[in-house]
């Protein structure tokens, strides 16, 4: 089977995977598309949204659909890094025992790691997670443990701010995407979620998903093939560079927001790592659209979720970030043409 056929076959599986999650989680097509992109771009994802909108259900559905081993941990204020690596207990003969924690338990077979309510965990835990995400490894018991297939999904709710720890910029930058999950807008979807008993039993809903059609251990290889099969043109390089510069100096591109001193708005734009994530995710978008050509619209499709959490506003404007960030992103996309 040549490479094109293989990519085409994987794309069919990816679209089936996306479809069955869409059937399970209603009204979140865009967020699900972004999650699917992150799976094949091999990037970590942070979900943010209100309580009860289905963040955890979405992550569980993704893990179930992907198959492979997974672990889940709940963020709490007293959670320490060691809790992720090992736990101690007395066995039935009263002798102390040390067993591997959630991170080490499956070893290299660990495919999906959930971190629920990540902002409730302390910075020490964020720090450990930062290494897991960046290097896919961790040091424990005088040796390094590798997790070559791990993908971290984390979520946090945007309502509660008490007893929470804001994720440091370095940790947020490790997430390829930060996806907002909002309540579905469509009345038919809302009605279905409220009245159809199928959506009331989350355990059964998740268990009904077909698992493992795409082998988790193949994802790295598939991701690599996708990245290599699509080569951006010089014009697209130029477009991506302009987008990057605009995240740092929007005023240079004529982007103006109301009641804002544009020269002072942005404290730091996207990082090079952020831009590489943008291109990786854009290539997967092109692949899912059955194209071998990377187009500006691929970058636009994932620009918001890959860039918004990488743009840091001046503290003066931080209190207006919920209003200014989307305006800035829209301004950048509408301010830069290609060609």
């Amino acid at each position: 089977m040549n490479l094109n056929n293989q990519l085409s076959e994987w794309r069919d599986l990816a679209l089936q995977f996306e479809q069955q999650i869409n059937d399970t989680i209603l009204g979140q097509n865009k967020a699900i598309r972004h999650c699917v992109i992150s799976v094949f771009a091999r990037g970590h994802v942070l979900l943010e949204g209100n309580v009860g909108v289905g963040k955890t259900t979405l992550l569980r559905a993704l893990a179930q659909g992907l198959g492979g081993d997974y672990q889940r941990i709940e963020g709490t204020i007293d959670l320490m890094p060691a809790d992720l690596i090992y736990y101690t207990y007395l066995d039935n003969r009263g002798r102390p025992q040390v067993d591997p924690g959630p991170l080490l338990k499956q070893g290299e077979r660990l495919a999906t790691f959930f971190f629920n309510e990540i902002n409730r965990a302390r910075p020490q835990v964020h720090s450990l997670l930062l290494r897991v995400m960046a290097e896919r490894s961790v040091s424990a018991f005088n040796q390094d443990y590798q997790f070559p297939h791990v993908q971290v999904f984390a979520d946090r709710n945007r309502i509660e701010r008490e007893e929470t720890f804001e994720l440091p910029a370095a940790a947020r930058d490790r997430f390829m995407m930060e996806i907002n999950i909002d309540t579905p807008k469509d009345d038919a979807d809302l009605s279905e979620l409220i009245f159809n008993p199928r959506f009331h039993d989350v355990e059964k809903l998740i268990a009904d998903l077909t698992s493992g059609k795409i082998a988790y251990y193949q994802l790295n290889e598939i991701g690599k093939e996708i990245q290599e099969s699509i080569q951006p043109s010089a014009k697209l390089h130029e477009y991506a560079l302009n987008l990057w510069k605009a995240t740092q100096r929007p005023a240079d591109f004529g982007i103006i927001l109301s009641d804002t001193e544009m020269n002072q708005l942005v404290q730091a734009g996207s990082s090079p790592r952020g831009m590489s994530f943008l291109i990786r995710a854009a290539k997967v978008n092109a692949w899912l659209e059955d194209r071998t050509t990377l187009l500006p619209e691929d970058l636009q499709a994932i620009f918001q979720v890959t860039m918004a959490h990488r743009i840091f506003l001046n503290p003066v404007y931080e209190y207006r970030k919920d209003e200014l960030k989307p305006e800035l992103i829209t301004g950048i996309l509408e301010g830069i043409s290609a060609p």
Binding site: E297, I336, S337, P339
Partner: peptide
């Protein structure tokens, strides 16, 4: 040629116009 016509469409649209 392509750039000229793209530019005209962008002017008409008031912002860059892409196929999608």
């Amino acid at each position: 040629m392509l750039a000229i016509f793209h530019h005209a469409l962008n002017r008409l649209n008031g912002k860059p116009l892409f196929k999608h």
